[in-house]
């Protein structure tokens, strides 16, 4: 419901009378959509018990792969390529981290992020530390091209998230998270569940990165592979409500909105207030924003 309403609003937003703030609002909204989509992707993986710090890297891999292949392939195939590169990387990482849990898994994924950033920084074809100019979505044929791509990626992430929050997959992922050994003894193919969610999550993260590249038109390893983005990918679902679809979705919009508003009002030092709000939210809303509206037993 919430997801459908947000997506509808996102589609209609460019045609609303937004006045002189139109361009700024649409830009902010677009970054918020991408933040939400990355958070949804992260949450998907978290549902199977894997707390990743690699989503900055999947985002970066997707961004670079899409940027580098767009001139040859065109916009949509390039985005797909970005997603696939991220998914492939996650598959290899996933094989290595299968036996790791919790903190150890997180540390391994953090190391992976650092390795990826260093590789992109040192490589020639990525532009290294100078950065990489990116051609706009659809070669600039549609001014709102990347905006609608962001809406589409958000819709896809929310759709996948909703689909996997019910039925067989819901049970398999929740069981894997809440007791891996027991899940296996009950017949859950845990290895398959973990690798598939990893691949799917990274694929979506890669798509988000690709759209981001086509919006900012410039990539640098520090930005695209930043640890900040990996942290944001996990803060947003925790703030909004873990293992839900509306949580990361709303969380991304509110956090980006809040961050933008604070930066406008306070300017320098806005991060102090921003951090304070997040700390208070995590302290007093242990089940996230959506936990406020759902009393009693939440769905596992």
């Amino acid at each position: 419901m919430i997801a459908a309403a947000i997506l509808l609003l996102a589609l209609l937003l460019p045609s609303l009378p937004l006045g002189e703030w139109r361009a700024f609002l649409l830009d902010t909204a677009q970054f918020a959509f991408l933040t939400s989509a990355l958070a949804l992707a992260w949450d998907l993986l978290a549902r199977s018990g894997q707390l990743s710090l690699a989503h900055g890297a999947f985002f970066g891999l997707g961004a670079y792969a899409a940027a580098l292949s767009a001139p040859a392939l065109g916009t949509l195939p390039a985005l797909l390529a970005g997603g696939l590169v991220a998914a492939l990387a996650s598959f290899l990482l996933g094989l290595a981290t299968l036996r790791l849990h919790g903190m150890y898994f997180a540390i391994a994924t953090l190391a992976f992020s650092e390795v990826m950033r260093t590789l992109v920084l040192k490589a020639q074809f990525t532009g290294g530390s100078i950065g990489l100019p990116v051609q706009p979505a659809f070669s600039g044929a549609f001014p709102l091209g990347s905006y609608y791509l962001a809406v589409a990626v958000l819709a896809l992430s929310a759709g996948v998230s909703l689909l996997l929050s019910r039925g067989r997959w819901h049970y398999a992922m929740a069981a894997t998270r809440q007791g891996e050994a027991v899940a296996r003894v009950l017949g859950v193919p845990v290895v398959r569940v973990k690798l598939l969610t990893f691949g799917l999550s990274a694929f979506l993260g890669g798509l988000v990165g690709g759209v981001y590249a086509m919006k900012t038109l410039f990539l640098s390893p520090y930005d695209a592979f930043g640890l900040g983005r990996a942290v944001e990918a996990l803060v947003v679902p925790i703030f909004g409500g873990l293992y839900t679809t509306s949580g990361p979705l709303l969380g991304g919009l509110i956090i980006v909105g809040l961050e933008t508003w604070l930066r406008l009002r306070i300017g320098e030092g806005y991060l102090v207030i921003y951090g304070l709000v997040l700390i208070l939210a995590i302290l007093f809303l242990p089940r996230g924003l959506v936990g406020l509206f759902r009393k009693g037993v939440g769905r596992a």
Partner: peptide, 28 residues
């Protein structure tokens, strides 16, 4: 099939959901 000595239910699931895991995945 196997039941454990130290009971390890999936704590965030209801009894029904716990059983659904076994029923869904116990036989492909």
């Amino acid at each position: 099939g196997r039941a454990f000595q130290i009971v390890q239910p999936f704590p965030e699931m209801s009894v029904w959901e716990n059983l659904m895991v076994g029923a869904l995945y116990g036989k492909p």
